[in-house]
Amino acid sequence: MTGKKALRVSADEVRPNRRRGGDIRVTLSPATAGSTSGFGGVLYLDRAEHVTEHYHPYSEEFIHVVAGELEMTLDGDETVKLGPGDSLLVPIGVRHRLVNVGDVQAYCAFHLSPLAPRPELGHVDTEEPLIPGGPNPHVGGAP
């Protein structure tokens, strides 16, 4: 045992990041929980809503769909349909864009690992964010 205690963070306690679409809440990260190997949280997407295309140059992204019907486009041409209970691994460096194609709000859990050397290096936009120049919280929602 390391003597460290487990830390619980509720999605309701985290400021939503809507810059790239949807309601993304990073719950466990270096900023929120002192994690050292990755970060994760939850994503809510309303009907027809999407997360703009991007990639992670240092991290794999793990996505697990809890509710809703989604389509993930990978590298601009491969589309993967996802539903409740489905999980998807997005490899390091693969461009991806997620769209809610269902009739209800979609809900996913996600995790990225390993961490980029600095938070601002972990995410590369390949499509203009929905809120240009808007707040872009670092991992964990830090200003």
Rank of each mutant, 00 (worst) to 15 (best):
R118E: 15
A48H: 10
G38F: 00
V66D: 08
E127A: 10
R97F: 07
L115Y: 02
H123I: 06
P119T: 02
V65K: 01
T2M: 11
H50V: 13
S113T: 07
E78L: 14
P16D: 01
L43R: 00
E127K: 11
D75N: 14
G134Y: 05
G76Q: 10
D125T: 04
D46F: 10
T2V: 06
G21V: 00
G93T: 10
G68M: 07
P137F: 02
L45T: 01
R118V: 05
A142V: 12
N100S: 13
T73N: 06
D77P: 01
A6Y: 08
G93E: 05
P57V: 09
D75R: 09
T2S: 15
V51C: 01
L82G: 07
S59M: 08
V80T: 13
I24H: 00
P119F: 13
G38W: 00
G68D: 07
L88G: 07
C108V: 03
P57Q: 09
V124I: 03
N100W: 03
R25Q: 08
A6C: 12
S37V: 12
G76C: 05
G38R: 11
S10R: 12
H56T: 04
N100C: 12
R8G: 04
D86Q: 10
Q105E: 15
R8Q: 09
N17D: 15
T32C: 02
R8Y: 13
M72Q: 04
V65C: 03
F62N: 07
R19H: 10
R18V: 14
H54E: 00
G3H: 08
T36Q: 14
Y107S: 10
L45Q: 01
D77K: 05
H96K: 03
S29K: 09
G21F: 06
G68Y: 13
M1A: 13
G22Q: 02
R18D: 05
F62L: 13
S10W: 03
G122Q: 07
S113W: 03
L45C: 01
V104G: 06
V139S: 03
E69P: 10
R47Y: 08
G102N: 00
G40N: 07
E71P: 06
F62M: 13
A109D: 08
G85W: 06
Q105R: 08
G85P: 03
G134I: 02
V42R: 04
R25L: 12
F110Y: 15
H138R: 14
V66N: 11
G68F: 06
D46S: 09
N100K: 00
E69Q: 13
T36P: 01
G83V: 01
V66I: 15
K5A: 10
E128H: 02
